[in-house]
């Protein structure tokens, strides 16, 4: 009697599990570090907004899934993907070989580059190498941080959030900040308190593509998202989103 009941329950559970596995994911959980304006940030209404958010929503619509965003600190955002707390990351993640070795990426959905921001009082520096003997800030674990570390003689200082790096530069503790082009533009050109103090120098010195990150081996989700990205690009929706967020 008892054995029979256990068997039935087990069979039912197995059936349910195989059914969900077969069905396409209806809803995906996506992590983003919403401290990276204008790509991803929290607005005055405590909503996660930005380029990436609009973009992924458009992709999801084309792919026929719904998205639930989860605001996650950048430091450890990959660890959360490892432990299965969410299915994907869209957070201005540059596709690099190191990252590709551990995670799967969709096709690049936009291309940007790293750029240097310095105080207006600095008249001479054009590249990171000009800041030898000084401290240059970036966000921990970003391609910007890796670029700074590549330059010998420059002391790299990493921050949990890029905003804290700009605040530290305002306080005079560091001499430059390296980050993604659109983010640099947001802080140095648009933000009221920093507009007077900072300037962007030179041109972007890397060529990078942003991709959506999923767990290694999740081919199904990559294919689904790539399908969506293609559709969005075909309809030119990404240009509209770009104009909306990156001025």
């Amino acid at each position: 009697m008892n054995v029979l009941r256990t068997l039935i329950v087990a069979a039912a559970m197995l059936a349910a599990m195989s059914l969900t596995a077969l069905a396409a994911p209806k809803s995906i959980k996506v992590a983003t570090d919403a401290t990276w304006p204008p790509m991803e940030m929290v607005d005055a209404n405590k909503q996660i907004v930005g380029y990436d958010i609009d973009f992924l929503n458009a992709v999801a619509k084309e792919a026929g899934v719904s998205v639930e965003f989860k605001n996650t600190a950048w430091d450890g955002i990959f660890a959360g993907l490892d432990s299965g707390q969410y299915d994907a990351i869209i957070s201005s993640v540059t596709i690099t070989d190191e990252r590709k070795a551990k995670y799967d990426f969709t096709d690049a959905y936009t291309s940007i580059g790293q750029i240097l921001v310095v105080p207006k009082t600095d008249k001479s520096s054009k590249t990171i190498a000009d800041l030898k003997g000084k401290k240059v800030g970036s966000q921990i674990g970003t391609t910007g941080a890796m670029e700074v570390k590549k330059v010998a003689g420059v002391e790299s200082k990493t921050y949990d959030e890029i905003g804290l790096a700009f605040e530290d530069m305002a306080a005079g503790r560091i001499s430059g900040v390296v980050c993604d082009e659109p983010v640099a533009a947001h802080f140095a050109l648009q933000k009221k308190e920093y507009k007077e103090k900072f300037k962007i120098v030179g041109k972007a010195f890397t060529k990078e593509g942003y991709g959506i990150v999923v767990k290694k081996g999740n081919k199904e989700l990559v294919a689904l998202l790539n399908k969506g990205i293609k559709a969005v690009k075909a309809k030119n929706l990404d240009t509209k989103i770009h104009t909306k967020w990156v001025k």
Binding site: D75, G76, A79, E98, G137, I140, A165
Partner: peptide, 22 residues
Amino acid sequence: SILAVADLLRRGREYASESFNY
């Protein structure tokens, strides 16, 4: 380490965030 002071924990976090060996 949250103040971007490169202490033991920050160094660990920097290493982990680039190597993914959390």
